Simulated scan of single mutants.
Amino acid sequence: MIPFNKPPYTGKEQQYVIAAMQSSNMSGDGPFSKKCQAWFEQRLGAPKTLLTPSCTAALEMAAILIDIQPGDEVIMPSYTFVSTANAFALRGAKVVFVDIRSDTMNIDETKIEAAITDKTKAIVPVHYAGVGCEMDTIMAIAERHGLFVVEDAAQGMMSSYKGRALGSIGHLGAFSFHETKNYTSGGEGGLLIINDSRFKERAEIIREKGTNRSQFFRGMVDKYSWVDIGSSFLPSELQAAYLWGQLEKAEEINDFRLSAWQYYMDKLAPLATAGKIQLATVPEQCQHNAHMFYLKVTGLTERGQLLAYLKTKNILAVFHYVPLHTAKAGSNFGRFHGEDRYTSKDSACLIRLPMFYGISKDDLKHVVENIFLFYKVNK
């Protein structure tokens, strides 16, 4: 079976994890954490980055930092993972979903302003498949209305919008290092990206259970104590050590994935030209990271048939999100503003093909050939 995903592995992770295990600092913010955070700060041009146990944790920290209160409203797409909404719903916010663009599956920036009320506190763009949202427009809307922008860039590491790294444009951003992402810190992991310096000091406190422990270890205070709300948002040094083994090969992993993505795109183009499938669109101003390769079919029935057919050929392809506004919790904690023109329709058509660091050309060829066979079209 060709798997849908294999977690990336470069060969150095084991060495670094053992080194962390044998050190006197396994609980976090040790040498590997500092290396990783310095790497991201240099790469992203961010004043501060903080490793977290997950992207979910990073988003939850962002919600606390922008002081989400019960009754506040937060605008985001419905086509996203539950963590995007949960982070704000946990603070008592009402989640306001708006439609997506059919070409990129990203939030439709033209639908945001109409959804703003006097209760709106933030906009949360989600960079689907590592392709940037229309951030200039979103940031301009936020500035006009005095709103925060929190980028859910879970899928966006190594991607950019107009030359700026995803996650580095809004006030705050978040990456994921889950095993399904391009880079992992051992199965789970995340990063909070702090682009607004006013959040730097408080972010450290929130991450350390609401204490000023980080300041204590830097010699800034003579003892540490409870000074704010917070939680356990500090990852193990083992996670950081594993991630460092990936960051050393970040360009190599990125180049490999882009090559595999381009193979799919080139080989499947005739099916798109024949009107059998639709392929992803990457706007000219965006550099993507080949986080996933997806195609869209005519609807739910055909999707089920193609997925079942590929499985018989030992190919594991999958669908993706069920729109949040159609879920039970989505109606409890949020509402959809405007017309659902593309969110539900396009989500029912989308299929993700196997894509991972190390996938062989033979496997890529096998996937493509069997999609052509399903549609009974000669290559």
Score class of each variant (00 low, 15 high):
160 S>D: 13
138 I>Q: 03
152 D>T: 11
139 M>W: 07
157 M>Q: 05
132 G>R: 07
131 V>P: 09
146 G>I: 04
137 T>D: 10
138 I>S: 02
135 M>T: 08
133 C>V: 09
155 Q>V: 08
148 F>L: 05
152 D>V: 06
137 T>M: 14
138 I>F: 05
145 H>M: 10
156 G>P: 02
143 E>C: 06
130 G>L: 05
149 V>C: 00
133 C>G: 03
151 E>I: 03
138 I>G: 02
134 E>Q: 13
142 A>L: 10
159 S>Q: 09
136 D>I: 07
153 A>M: 04
139 M>D: 04
136 D>Y: 06
159 S>N: 09
151 E>P: 03
160 S>R: 14
141 I>E: 10
144 R>T: 11
151 E>V: 00
140 A>T: 14
140 A>Y: 11
139 M>G: 04
160 S>Q: 13
131 V>I: 15
154 A>C: 14
130 G>K: 12
138 I>N: 05
159 S>L: 06
138 I>W: 02
136 D>C: 03
149 V>K: 01
150 V>T: 04
130 G>R: 06
130 G>I: 07
141 I>A: 03
134 E>S: 10
148 F>C: 01
143 E>W: 08
142 A>Q: 03
146 G>W: 06
154 A>H: 13
151 E>H: 03
137 T>V: 14
140 A>G: 12
136 D>P: 09
159 S>I: 10
152 D>E: 13
138 I>D: 01
160 S>N: 14
133 C>L: 07
142 A>P: 11
131 V>C: 12
156 G>K: 01
148 F>V: 06
143 E>D: 11
133 C>Y: 01
157 M>D: 01
130 G>T: 03
134 E>R: 12
155 Q>S: 12
154 A>Y: 11
160 S>W: 08
158 M>L: 10
151 E>L: 01
156 G>R: 00
160 S>H: 14
137 T>I: 15
156 G>W: 00
141 I>L: 14
150 V>Y: 05
147 L>P: 01
131 V>D: 08
147 L>Q: 08
150 V>M: 05
142 A>R: 05
154 A>N: 07
137 T>P: 07
158 M>T: 15
153 A>N: 09
132 G>K: 05
152 D>M: 04
